[in-house]
């Protein structure tokens, strides 16, 4: 029991003897090895490290001078350390693809140009309808003091139900049909609207979850054929889906198939209802 005698703190003793299981090395079928090691961190927590490695032996013929130097004993800070790279000083960085190519500069320029365009499109998407700033209308700092652009009715008139789309145009007193009113052009409940669209291959999808995105719908419906348009009605204030959408197919047969398959399909927590869109009046 000389070990115990040399150490006064019995708790620490136990930690070292029982706390750290010996490293386990398991050989896998595919030639790799799984090494499980344990160590205790500075804050006293036990850490289990599982490494899966594949060993490849690469034989290399080198100059005898080089071979001799490889056998030199380590010195300085490395003195007494085991052969092979030490993890504290040597690591392998992420893979870098390096393919030299003629006129590299030109190709690199093209790419950046393309990315610039992409960024420009992305930026253009967000535009405040109140102050034309690059933020969402709901986040606008002037939303309580200013009316949306083009709407004559000030916000403080108490016409809470008059959405920007419903507001009268700048034209004055004469009646303006809803689809010609300002603000209605951006988005909203436009069913066909002023555009003459071929609605023969368009499906009306209702009972859509309010968390749905156009992308989700496109993914679901493009299984049946080429989808030309997905329109998901969104609430102007909250940007959440209003619960219905239109999906246009290039081919009516695809649309018919999608209508049959997707009617009653469970999406999110709701069951979709899919039917052919009726020609808007």
């Amino acid at each position: 029991m000389s070990k115990v005698a040399g150490r006064t703190d019995w708790a620490e003793e136990e930690d070292e003897d029982i706390g750290i299981p010996p490293p386990q090395i398991t050989k896998n079928k595919d030639g790799t090895e799984t090494i499980v090691t344990y160590h205790i961190r500075e804050d006293g927590k036990k850490v289990k490290t599982t490494r899966r490695i594949k060993k490849t032996v690469i034989k290399q013929v080198v100059n005898p001078r080089v071979a001799e130097r490889k056998q030199w004993a380590k010195f300085g800070n490395e003195k007494g350390k085991a052969a092979g790279p030490q993890t504290d000083t040597t690591s392998v960085a992420e893979n870098i693809v390096f393919r030299p190519m003629a006129n590299w500069k030109a190709s690199a320029d093209d790419k950046s140009e393309h990315e610039k365009k992409k960024a420009a499109v992305k930026d253009a998407k967000i535009k405040c309808r109140i102050c034309s700033g690059d933020h969402w209308t709901t986040k606008c700092p002037f939303k309580d003091t200013m009316a949306p652009e083009g709407a004559d009715t000030p916000a403080d008139l108490g016409l809470d139900d008059a959405e920007p789309a419903g507001g009268l145009g700048a034209g004055g007193s004469s009646y303006v049909p809803p689809h010609l009113r300002k603000g209605g052009a951006g988005s909203g409940e436009r069913m066909g609207g002023k555009y003459e669209r071929d609605d023969l291959a368009t499906l009306r999808v209702t009972n859509v979850s309010e968390f749905a995105e156009e992308g989700d719908l496109r993914d679901m419906f493009s299984r049946f054929g080429h989808v030309t348009r997905v329109f998901l009605a969104k609430d102007r204030e909250t940007q959440r889906a209003k619960g219905f959408a239109f999906v246009s197919f290039a081919d009516r047969a695809d649309a018919a198939k999608a209508c049959e398959k997707m009617d009653g399909y469970g999406f999110g927590h709701l069951i979709l209802r899919v039917e052919f869109a009726r020609k808007s009046t």
Partner: peptide
């Protein structure tokens, strides 16, 4: 202030010169 020597083949440090 320290010189390090490394094997180029695997990045193993041979030693340091103080």
């Amino acid at each position: 202030h320290v010189i390090c020597a490394w094997f180029s083949i695997n990045g193993e440090r041979l030693g340091t010169y103080h």
